[in-house]
Amino acid sequence: MTRLADTFARTASENRAALVAFVTAGDPSPAHTPAILDAIVAGGADVIELGMPFTDPMADGPAIQAANLRALAAGLRTADVLAIAKTFRERHPQVPLVLMGYANPMLSRGPEWFADAAAKAGVDGVICVDIPAEEDAALGPALRAAGIDPVRLATPTTDAARLPQVLAGASGFLYYVSVAGITGMQQAASGSIEAAVARLKAGTDLPVAVGFGVRTPAQAAAVARVADGVVVGSAIVEALAKAGGDPEAGRALVAGLAEAVRDARIGAVA
């Protein structure tokens, strides 16, 4: 079993969803990130999604765009992202860490180099926003060879004809993007999320985590009732930005989200 599989199995056995918390590496500076990640874990995050900054984050809304540019302006390099992952792994041997980012920084030194470096840093999965199933050859084989899960994205526009192709190369978990849009915008209706998760689960045994537009504990709870994982990104990035990168701001927000996710299914029964 991998750390991702172990974690989703454990949260499922606890009859709850996993909380996947997103943080942009190097925001506001590379030195801030380790303490922020520790605080997010302390707050109750089950999986860490570490954003790899890119100059042109075309799938991201204003909050994460700004975080990307702050990190790069603070001098963040790919080597820093890998170092952050490596030291996180040393401090948290069991907490899965997934890198999320764009193709160009991941492919810049070649896919094998990246997959190998990420594996050595203890990275469990990679989400590449702009490498769809059709372009899997660009990165997927290198990740699999290095023992890293290529986490695939499914969206409201992923139709029945393409879903098998999306699922074919996926591992770790399936990330359902609940709205057609960029990060940090409005949330989808929970009824449509439930139907979408059911559709995806009919085609895969992988856990399904739902993200995009999940900001508050109430929204997280609504998703946690129907999905195996809840991804929160922009809300955490914004809270940290507002607090100047103070880890406590991240811990407090994540603690509220974690509590809501843990209680979600109990609440639904009661």
Binding site: V129, A138, L153, T157, T158
Partner: peptide
Amino acid sequence: AQGHFGEFGGQYVAETLMPLVL
């Protein structure tokens, strides 16, 4: 058919857009 000119080109877009470009 996948839009490759030798090693160049292709369809490197977010999943949401993939059905649209197809």
